[in-house]
Design a protein around this nucleic acid. Structure first.
Lengths: 146, 146
DNA sequence: GCATTCCGGTTGCAGAGTACAACTCGCGCC
DNA sequence: GGCGCGAGTTGTACTCTGCAACCGGAATGC
């Protein structure tokens, strides 16, 4: 096996380990927000508001799943939906003030945990690692094993 | 926000995107094996056999969850358990021939998908990316957000 | 102008994965 | 022998998820 192949092997294995642990620790870091909810809120903030369908596409989730998650977030008062005047089928989702607040709180805790984890890393490596991940996810969004 | 902080932000965000997409695509890549099962089989191969508790610890899963997954894999004839002669509480899990075969098959498909995804990457970057992931997961196993 | 098709979203349903708690059984220590 | 500990199983309940069926608005065909 070439070193490239062995690297590919390692990447898939380690990505999986990461995913499992992330799921497990999400409850510790933000008990009030499920991992999915946190992720969706984050995407809404980053994108400055989008449609449920966009969320579904980005995270490779079924639209029904997103629909339910969104409904829960709305019930909790963390997001609001307003009908799109251009297209009456569409509902644009946006963070409410409360949503921004909770998200900021959780992000702080989450970032602290990450930073502790990455404390020993030289900044150069952090930046490069982040770039690799972005590059990986950017390629063929939604296709392939990741 | 320093560039290190922004990198940390990116790392957590992109890791989550990866995890979601991986979960979604697992069914396409190996319909006969759930993502969990595949992962557990992989760990058994890599470790050359271990206990259920080890699996639980490594993937931050509850022992009951692992117990059920293991039971299913045994029913499917992919692994076998043999009592540890040293300690009669312990059952050592090992891949069967069928298990090795299925795992190899799935790994081939999975690797092909990954390789396609990573085809444009220079080998040097692949190796470095893999190293980062290993380093990340190795630090404080089971703690923190990953 | 109307029919058809497409698209965004919701709801019913079923299945998988998971955790927690309570339990059994074997080990080790006193 | 008695007690606490660790490995594993089972009962239970809950969440996440996808699929299929559906509703209503938009776009396209004639």
């Amino acid at each position: 096996m070439s070193s490239a192949e062995s690297a590919v092997e390692t990447i898939q294995r380690e990505m999986t380990v990461f995913a499992r642990r992330a799921r497990a620790s999400a409850g510790r870091i933000h008990p009030e927000l499920s991992l999915v909810s946190y992720t969706l809120l984050g995407h809404l903030e980053e994108s400055g508001g989008c449609r449920a369908t966009d969320l579904a596409a980005h995270y490779a989730l079924d639209k029904s799943t997103v629909s339910r998650q969104v409904a829960a977030l709305e019930r909790a008062g963390l997001i609001e939906r307003r009908p799109d005047p251009e297209d009456h089928r569409v509902q644009v989702l946006r963070l409410t003030g409360a949503g921004q607040e909770i998200l900021a709180q959780v992000t702080r805790r989450r970032r602290a945990a990450f930073r502790e984890r990455l404390a020993q890393w030289p900044e150069e490596d952090l930046v490069r690692f982040a770039a690799y991940l972005e590059r990986y996810n950017a390629g063929a969004a939604g296709l392939g094993p990741g």
